[in-house]
Amino acid sequence: MAASSGLHTKGKRIAPVLAGYSAIPIKFSKKSQSHHFLYVKEHRVREELDPTRPQDRTLFILNVPPYCTKKCLSALFSRHCAIESVELQEKPGPEEKVEIARAQSKFFSLKTVPGFRVAYIVFKSQEGAQTIKSLKPREPLVISTKTCPTKTGIKKWISDYATTLVNPGELQMEVDAFMQNHDKRIAEEEKKAEEEEGVPDEEGWVKVTRKGRRPGIPRTEAANLRTLEREKKKRARKELLNFYAWQHRESKREHIAQLRKKFEEDKQKIALMRAQRKFRPY
């Protein structure tokens, strides 16, 4: 989606007609000589499909420039009527679902999508949406003002770099808070599962959870050794044998250890057979 060039008549720029949309001219700052248009229309989607965006109080906006943030849009239209919420998305559609912890996080938030975007603005009253839809300013609305400046150039690069620097203390606090909430949620789910277990529902079915299963039989030492041997063989098949010098040395060392182990086992067998008078070398 890109900014449209528009038409010129007697030095004035006329917005290209887009069926169903109203055009609102905007420019970056008062010094800017060029401008482009935002295309606005009422958001018409059934409330059960999009409950967070009421039809009579929500406007859908196309052609939002990359430098225009939520704060800028709010400041731009709140001069005319009160705003409840502003959302910026890469493309039209339902609200982009982001995990609550991640959305509120200072360190794990999603990256800003570059390029032109779309916006959904929810007003506090029905009159607000109608006012903006019928808005026809004589001069383009200014995005970057003294009260709400938009950073560009070196200032923006410095700001973006500063956001990449992480404070270890703040990060640790956020991680600890997240883990506490996670443990609390897991404990609540386990408690709920225990309460529901064994209680039949309306149709007579009984819910069985993992805790209701029969406890497994502990492994013997021989079973553990066999499992370790299988994992070792499986790992050895994936590796390049004797590819490196240290692998060659280790394979020799293991071979010698196996021979010594076999020798000791044979000595014990021979001693046992002698004690039982079963050893006949010839």
Rank of each mutant, 00 (worst) to 15 (best):
M1A: 13
A15P: 05
L18M: 12
G20E: 08
Y21A: 05
I24K: 08
I24V: 06
I26E: 09
K27M: 11
S29N: 13
K30P: 04
K31G: 08
S34T: 06
F37K: 06
K41M: 13
K41Y: 09
H43E: 06
R44D: 13
R44Q: 07
R44F: 07
V45Y: 06
R46W: 03
E48N: 09
R53L: 01
L62D: 07
N63K: 06
N63T: 00
P65M: 09
P66I: 02
Y67M: 11
T69D: 06
K71G: 11
K71I: 02
K71H: 14
A75Q: 03
F77T: 02
F77S: 02
S78H: 10
R79Y: 10
I83V: 03
S85P: 01
E90P: 08
E90S: 13
E90D: 15
K91Y: 15
E96N: 06
E96I: 09
I100N: 03
A103C: 02
F107D: 00
L110W: 14
V113Y: 15
P114L: 05
G115A: 02
G115I: 01
R117H: 04
K124C: 12
S125D: 11
Q126V: 00
G128W: 11
G128M: 09
A129V: 01
Q130R: 14
T131D: 07
K133A: 06
S134W: 04
L135Q: 15
P137Q: 13
P140W: 10
P140L: 05
L141A: 03
I143H: 11
K146I: 12
T147R: 15
T147W: 10
K151I: 01
K151W: 09
T152M: 10
W157Y: 09
I158H: 05
I158G: 02
Y161V: 00
P168V: 04
L171N: 11
M173N: 13
E174Q: 11
D176M: 04
A177M: 02
M179A: 13
H182M: 02
D183Q: 08
I186W: 08
I186V: 02
A187Y: 09
E188K: 13
E189A: 15
E190V: 04
E190M: 11
K192L: 06
K192P: 02
E197C: 11
E202M: 00
W205I: 07
V206F: 13
V206S: 10
K207P: 01
R210P: 02
R213D: 12
R213Y: 13
E221V: 03
A222P: 00
A222D: 08
A223I: 03
A223F: 08
L225D: 14
L225S: 06
T227D: 14
R230M: 05
K233W: 13
E239G: 08
Y244F: 15
Q247R: 13
Q247W: 11
H248N: 12
H248T: 05
H248F: 08
S251D: 12
S251G: 03
E254P: 00
E254C: 04
I256F: 15
R260H: 07
K261E: 01
K262P: 01
E264V: 02
D266V: 04
Q268W: 14
Q268Y: 12
I270W: 05
A275V: 01
A275C: 03
Q276M: 01
K278R: 14
P281N: 09
